[in-house]
Simulated assay, not measured.
Amino acid sequence: MEIDNNLVENAVRPLAVGRKAFLFAGSHQAAEMTATMYSFMASCKRNKVNEFDWLKDVFERIQSHKQKDLYQLLPSNWEPACR
């Protein structure tokens, strides 16, 4: 067993630091959107996907995707568009 838990503390620090900021999101809807973006970014990190590249690609492609195929743009299923 490790004596310290620095890995765990580092993993939860962004949530702990942002907790007070979330109180001032502006509205309930804004707070929900912020939580959604945090979830997407955490999913990108978990799947070893560059967050900026994923977000840029999704914004460029989402309008042309059919609703039934949107799951392909999730970080766990995402493959960059061939350019």
Rank of each mutant, 00 (worst) to 15 (best):
E79R: 07
G26A: 10
H65N: 04
V49K: 00
H65L: 06
S39P: 01
D53P: 01
S76L: 10
E51F: 09
R83P: 12
G18V: 07
L55G: 07
Q29R: 15
E32A: 12
W78E: 05
W54F: 00
I3R: 15
Y71E: 08
N77P: 02
A11C: 08
E51D: 12
L70Q: 02
K68Y: 03
S43K: 11
Y71L: 11
L7T: 12
E9H: 06
F40E: 03
A21H: 07
Q67Y: 07
Q63C: 08
K45F: 13
Y71S: 06
P80S: 12
M37N: 00
L74A: 12
K48V: 07
V58W: 14
Q29F: 11
M33Q: 09
Y71M: 09
P80K: 10
L15W: 08
A16S: 06
A30K: 09
I3N: 06
F40A: 10
F40M: 04
Q29C: 03
A30P: 04
M37V: 11
A21L: 13
M37R: 06
S39D: 14
N77W: 03
V49P: 00
K48L: 13
K66R: 13
A81L: 01
R13P: 01
L73S: 00
R61D: 07
L7D: 11
R61L: 02
M1C: 11
D4M: 02
E9P: 01
G26W: 07
G18C: 12
S43L: 04
L15N: 10
L7P: 05
A21S: 11
S27A: 06
R19P: 04
D69V: 02
V12F: 12
V58N: 01
L73Q: 01
V12C: 02
D57H: 02
R61C: 03
S39V: 05
D4F: 04
Q67K: 10
I62Y: 05
N10P: 03
E9K: 12
P80Q: 05
V17C: 02
E2D: 15
Q63N: 15
E60I: 13
L15C: 01
N10Q: 10
K56W: 12
S43Y: 01
K68N: 05
G26Y: 05
K45A: 13
K68D: 07
Y71D: 11
T36C: 11
H28E: 05
E9R: 09
R61Y: 00
M37F: 03
C82R: 07
E2K: 15
M41L: 15
C82L: 01
R46Q: 10
S39W: 08
E32I: 07
A11T: 11
V17E: 15
N6I: 04
F52P: 02
A31W: 05
D53F: 01
D57L: 00
F59N: 15
